[in-house]
């Protein structure tokens, strides 16, 4: 009974695109917060098996390109997983503030 219940719960969870947070970080936040920028990069994996983590760099490059010549501070970075069995989407979401000049 217990095993059947757990199996059902796990299966239902896996099938509905549930999100789980893996890590989060926040860097120093500037006083000037008028220009918010954000970047997202993701990678699809089969059963969570990945062979590269290069997708993380895409978010960094995207943030950089949105603030050319300026300084990005107050970066909130979330690394999360979304599961659509058998596919697992790994995603990095970064939001910060661009200050130029």
């Amino acid at each position: 009974m217990f095993k059947r219940f757990i199996t059902l719960a796990v299966l239902m969870t896996a099938l509905t695109g549930c999100v789980s947070l893996n890590s989060v970080s926040l860097t120093q936040v500037p006083a000037e917060r008028s220009n918010e920028i954000s970047a997202t990069s993701s990678s699809w994996t089969f059963l969570g098996i990945a062979f590269s983590n290069d997708f993380v760099d895409e978010a960094v490059l995207d943030l950089k390109s949105q603030c050319a010549g300026g300084k990005v501070e107050g970066i909130l970075t979330k690394f999360q997983h979304t599961v659509f069995i058998p596919v697992v989407i790994r995603e990095v979401v970064a939001t910060g503030y661009c200050h130029k000049g």
């Binding site: 969870t13 549930c18 947070l21 120093q28 936040v29 500037p30 107050g74 909130l76 979401v93």
Partner: peptide, 26 residues
């Protein structure tokens, strides 16, 4: 049972923190 579809509470924490400080947060 794992049924959750966003991580917005993380962004809310940042907003709450910033709402308490008009200056620089270090």
């Amino acid at each position: 049972l794992g049924f959750v579809f966003d991580t917005d509470y993380v962004d809310q924490a940042k907003q709450q923190l910033m709402a308490q400080c008009n200056g620089r947060l270090s």
